[in-house]
């Protein structure tokens, strides 16, 4: 059994990368593999509350966040100091890491996959 970190860095609306990264996390968890998530860059848009994308804009991946705990995915990390996150309502299930914690995060897993 390996500890896996899925790092989402792509916009949830620009491509399928975010969705397919989350799909992999859910499958790993379904197979009882320990998996954590971390978000950076454009993927942080996933956290914004009250998203109502149309079919053309893409799936509402934000709705998946609330269900992660049922898959035992309980660690979702972001880096602190994203000021825009405090300006608007966002999903509160994330753990904020300082710069040093963020940098050491990636060496704590046996495998890291980026989407």
């Amino acid at each position: 059994m390996k500890y896996t970190l899925i790092h989402l860095n792509s916009s949830p609306y620009f491509s399928l990368a975010c969705k397919e990264g989350l799909d992999l996390a859910l499958v790993l968890a379904t197979f009882e593999q320990p998996v954590d998530l971390c978000l950076s860059g454009a993927a942080l848009a996933l956290l914004t509350d009250n998203q109502t994308p149309t079919a053309e804009q893409g799936k509402n991946l934000h709705k998946l966040l609330a269900g992660l705990e049922f898959y035992d995915i309980e660690n979702i990390f972001i880096e602190k100091h994203h000021s825009w996150l405090s300006d608007q309502p966002t999903w509160q299930g994330v753990q904020q890491l300082d710069e040093a914690e963020w940098q050491t995060l990636f060496s704590q897993y046996q495998q890291v996959f980026r989407f």
């Binding site: 059994m1 390996k2 896996t4 992999l24 499958v27 197979f31 593999q33 996959f113 980026r114």
Partner: peptide
């Protein structure tokens, strides 16, 4: 399915991603 990837992860030493 992705389950095959999980199986590969658990039966090889290292998975290398090319993106």
């Amino acid at each position: 399915g992705l389950g095959t990837l999980v199986d590969l992860m658990n039966t090889t030493n290292k998975v290398i991603q090319f993106r």
